[in-house]
């Protein structure tokens, strides 16, 4: 631990503060994740660790590396930015997947207004599809003669075109 002895005390206190802050937030997030009752509550807990939990540890790591190397070491920021950008994406995807799965099962976890809004939409879509189907069923009678005529015309053209 000889390389740590060169750090001035004020900087050491600052580094220690950020490290303790970050790791405590990660621990609290994990505690919440293990203890909360429903999935939709649990999805909030890891964001503690990914917002200021990660930020605290990264700031401390940057401060320490910058002092020890004598130049601004900021490559930890890449990890920080990466976590800030990717964690929302995974959480949104997971949230949507969970909502989708719970909806198809009519899970009691979802309140009525979330289910009804979706049911109305599905119903409207089914009605639109049925309408389109009905229209498609009504149309072939008008459509088929046209296709036949087109085929006849094409065959006729081939017949007339082949000899020449």
């Amino acid at each position: 631990m000889s390389h740590l002895e060169t750090i001035p005390v004020w900087l050491a206190v600052l580094i220690a503060f950020f490290v303790v802050l970050g790791s405590t937030l990660v621990l609290l997030g994990a505690l919440g994740f293990a203890r909360l009752a429903s999935f939709y509550d649990r999805i909030h807990a890891p964001t503690l660790g990914t917002s200021w939990g990660t930020a605290g540890i990264i700031i401390a790591s940057m401060l320490m590396a910058s002092y020890l190397e004598g130049r601004a070491v900021i490559h930890e920021l890449v990890i920080g930015i990466f976590v800030m950008l990717t964690v929302p994406v995974t959480l949104i995807l997971l949230g949507r997947a969970a909502l989708h799965r719970d909806r198809t099962e009519n899970s009691p976890l979802l309140p009525e207004h979330v289910l009804t809004a979706h049911r109305k939409k599905v119903q409207a879509e089914a009605e639109a599809a049925a309408e389109a189907e009905a229209r498609a069923e009504a149309e072939p009678e008008q459509k088929l003669p046209v296709e036949d005529a087109a085929e006849d015309a094409a065959e006729g053209r081939n017949e007339t075109g082949a000899p020449s």
């Binding site: 631990m1 050491a12 490290v19 303790v20 790791s23 405590t24 621990l27 994740f33 293990a34």
Partner: peptide, 28 residues
């Protein structure tokens, strides 16, 4: 002095993060 402060803080962080990993692992 500063080595002691940082070592204690980092030790605490390692224990806290390992505990967090165990908690997350139980849920997993």
């Amino acid at each position: 002095m500063s080595a002691l402060i940082i070592t204690v803080a980092l030790g605490y962080a390692q224990i806290a993060l390992a505990t967090a990993g165990i908690l997350v692992g139980t849920r997993l």
